[in-house]
Protein backbone atom coordinates (compact mmCIF):
# COMPACT_ATOMS: atom_id res chain seq x y z
CA UNK A 1 0.00 0.00 0.00
CA UNK A 2 2.33 2.74 -1.22
CA UNK A 3 -0.46 5.35 -1.02
CA UNK A 4 -0.84 4.71 2.65
CA UNK A 5 2.90 4.97 3.23
CA UNK A 6 3.08 8.30 1.43
CA UNK A 7 0.22 9.58 3.55
CA UNK A 8 1.94 8.50 6.74
CA UNK A 9 5.14 10.22 5.64
CA UNK A 10 3.20 13.42 4.95
CA UNK A 11 1.49 13.28 8.33
CA UNK A 12 4.72 12.70 10.24
CA UNK A 13 6.80 15.26 8.34
CA UNK A 14 4.24 18.08 8.40
CA UNK A 15 3.77 17.40 12.11
CA UNK A 16 7.50 17.77 12.72
CA UNK A 17 7.45 20.95 10.63
CA UNK A 18 4.72 22.42 12.78
CA UNK A 19 6.71 21.63 15.93
CA UNK A 20 9.69 23.58 14.60
CA UNK A 21 7.50 26.52 13.62
CA UNK A 22 6.04 26.55 17.13
CA UNK A 23 9.58 26.35 18.57
CA UNK A 24 10.55 29.40 16.53
CA UNK A 25 7.60 31.35 17.83
CA UNK A 26 8.19 30.25 21.43
CA UNK A 27 11.82 31.33 21.10
CA UNK A 28 10.74 34.63 19.59
CA UNK A 29 8.51 35.21 22.59
CA UNK A 30 10.72 33.83 25.38
CA UNK A 31 14.33 34.64 24.47
CA UNK A 32 15.71 37.62 26.37
CA UNK A 33 17.35 39.81 23.70
CA UNK A 34 17.01 40.78 20.06
CA UNK A 35 19.90 38.64 18.80
CA UNK A 36 18.90 35.46 20.59
CA UNK A 37 15.40 35.87 19.22
CA UNK A 38 16.85 36.22 15.75
CA UNK A 39 18.61 32.87 16.24
CA UNK A 40 15.36 31.15 17.11
CA UNK A 41 13.52 32.57 14.18
CA UNK A 42 16.11 31.93 11.50
CA UNK A 43 16.95 28.36 12.38
CA UNK A 44 13.70 26.88 13.62
CA UNK A 45 11.52 28.43 10.95
CA UNK A 46 13.48 27.36 7.95
CA UNK A 47 13.77 23.87 9.29
CA UNK A 48 10.01 23.90 9.85
CA UNK A 49 9.43 25.03 6.29
CA UNK A 50 11.83 22.33 5.10
CA UNK A 51 9.81 19.59 6.80
CA UNK A 52 6.49 21.00 5.56
CA UNK A 53 7.87 21.12 2.01
CA UNK A 54 9.17 17.57 2.34
CA UNK A 55 5.83 16.38 3.68
CA UNK A 56 3.97 18.08 0.85
CA UNK A 57 6.38 16.47 -1.59
CA UNK A 58 5.00 13.02 -0.74
CA UNK A 59 1.65 14.13 -2.18
CA UNK A 60 3.10 15.52 -5.42
CA UNK A 61 1.82 14.07 -8.68
CA UNK A 62 4.89 14.70 -10.81
CA UNK A 63 8.52 15.75 -10.62
CA UNK A 64 7.95 19.40 -11.54
CA UNK A 65 5.91 19.90 -8.39
CA UNK A 66 8.70 18.33 -6.37
CA UNK A 67 11.25 20.59 -8.02
CA UNK A 68 9.10 23.66 -7.38
CA UNK A 69 8.86 22.69 -3.72
CA UNK A 70 12.64 22.39 -3.61
CA UNK A 71 13.04 25.77 -5.26
CA UNK A 72 10.70 27.34 -2.72
CA UNK A 73 12.80 26.02 0.12
CA UNK A 74 16.08 27.06 -1.49
CA UNK A 75 14.80 30.62 -2.01
CA UNK A 76 13.50 30.76 1.55
CA UNK A 77 16.94 29.67 2.84
CA UNK A 78 18.68 32.32 0.75
CA UNK A 79 16.31 34.99 2.07
CA UNK A 80 16.74 33.77 5.66
CA UNK A 81 20.54 33.81 5.52
CA UNK A 82 20.47 37.33 4.12
CA UNK A 83 17.78 38.77 6.34
CA UNK A 84 19.30 37.33 9.52
CA UNK A 85 22.63 39.06 8.84
CA UNK A 86 21.10 42.36 7.74
CA UNK A 87 18.59 42.65 10.56
CA UNK A 88 21.20 41.61 13.15
CA UNK A 89 23.51 44.31 11.85
CA UNK A 90 20.76 46.95 11.77
CA UNK A 91 19.81 45.98 15.33
CA UNK A 92 23.45 46.33 16.37
CA UNK A 93 23.45 49.90 15.06
CA UNK A 94 20.07 50.74 16.50
CA UNK A 95 20.47 49.16 19.92
CA UNK A 96 18.64 51.19 22.48
CA UNK A 97 16.91 53.41 19.95
CA UNK A 98 13.12 53.80 19.55
Amino acid sequence: MPEGLADIATIVLTGIGLVFFLAGTVGLIRFPDVFSRLHALTKADNLGLGFIVLGAGFQADDWTQLAKLGLIWALALLAAGTVAQLVARAALRQEGRE
Binding site: L75, L78, T82, Q85, L86, R89
Partner: peptide, 13 residues
Amino acid sequence: GVLSVFGRLLPPV
Protein backbone atom coordinates in the same frame (compact mmCIF):
# COMPACT_ATOMS: atom_id res chain seq x y z
CA GLY B 1 28.58 43.18 1.65
CA VAL B 2 25.59 40.97 2.44
CA LEU B 3 23.06 43.17 0.66
CA SER B 4 25.19 43.52 -2.43
CA VAL B 5 25.79 39.78 -2.74
CA PHE B 6 22.08 39.06 -2.30
CA GLY B 7 21.29 41.66 -4.95
CA ARG B 8 23.59 39.83 -7.35
CA LEU B 9 22.07 36.40 -6.71
CA LEU B 10 18.34 37.14 -6.80
CA PRO B 11 17.66 39.03 -10.07
CA PRO B 12 18.44 36.16 -12.49
CA VAL B 13 16.01 33.84 -10.71
